[in-house]
Computed example of a mutant assay.
Amino acid sequence: MRQALNRIGLLLGLLFGVVLPAAAYDAPLLAIVIDDLGDNRARGMAAVNLPGAITYAVLPHTPHARELAIRAHQLGKEVILHAPMENKSGLRLGPGALTRGQSPAELQHVLNGNLDVIPYVVGMNNHMGSMLTEQRGKMDPIMQVVKQRNLFFLDSVTTSDTVAWKVAHEYGIPYLVRDVFLDNQRNQAYIHNQFKQALSLAVNRGHAVLIGHPYPETVAYLNKVIPILQQLGVRLVTASELLNQRSRTQLILAQPTLDPCDHAEGHCDSLPVAAKR
């Protein structure tokens, strides 16, 4: 085992500048989630055709949501709802938005409608949401629906003051938190550095959750690096598979650490904050 870890560490160092420490866990786990599927068919299909176990977050009531979800499922990929939630910047949310002005019953009605139109959904994460995810009173009815439907929840962490993952925990809902946004800047150098950061977290902590988007730059980069992961000994897993590994002691469940950023159209949704871990 130690020889294998040393070999992986050497390869990571050569290819990505990441150092793998001596550790007792098995292969590091990396979950890649691609957000914002549904509006653009060509970009969505290119993302769905990426190799490996990837999770796709689909926007509700968008022109190509159903087709892309079905295709992802046919390819053995994972589908979750990308639920639009109110942000602080006044950015357009699109159909199926969850907002402060809605009552608990209205929030649940809209969310159930969002879930009903996307086939094969096994979980959900928030699209934007820097405003809504800070409000416990709004997260309660949302998590009640998640619980009733036996889904998992991924907190995209678009604000340092999110309570979404905490409420999910209180309801006994399987949950994850985003570690790294891959492509807030759509250039290869930035994307590469973000990917290295995710790899570093994975090999040091045992796992990482990386969120990207169906941008051509992102898809081109992932098409190159995903096949290398197996050679490095890093295991690509879906979000639900990562949750299934939570009972392993090496998969430490930690609070989000990185600067929150509402990633729609690359806009940051709040000011940078210090790491919390």
Rank of each mutant, 00 (worst) to 15 (best):
V180C: 14
G13V: 01
I142R: 12
Y56Q: 00
D161W: 11
Q144C: 04
Y56D: 02
C268W: 15
L258G: 10
R2N: 05
E67M: 11
I34C: 00
L222V: 04
N112G: 06
G76F: 06
V122A: 08
K276P: 03
V209E: 12
T238P: 03
A31F: 01
E265G: 00
E217G: 03
I34S: 02
H263A: 10
A168E: 10
V121T: 13
L91R: 11
V163S: 14
D262C: 12
A46K: 04
A27V: 13
R92G: 03
D179W: 12
T257N: 11
E217D: 06
A27S: 14
P272Y: 10
V33P: 10
G123P: 14
A46C: 00
A202G: 14
V225L: 08
L115V: 09
A239F: 01
E170N: 09
K88C: 08
K224T: 01
Q194L: 13
L93C: 11
F153N: 13
P256D: 04
G172W: 05
A168T: 11
L154C: 07
H213W: 01
G123T: 13
N187C: 15
A274Y: 08
G206W: 04
K77C: 07
A47C: 00
V203Q: 12
L10T: 15
G129Q: 06
T133H: 11
L15Y: 02
K166L: 08
N204P: 07
L10W: 07
V79S: 09
H192S: 15
N49Y: 00
L229H: 04
Y221T: 05
H263D: 06
P84W: 01
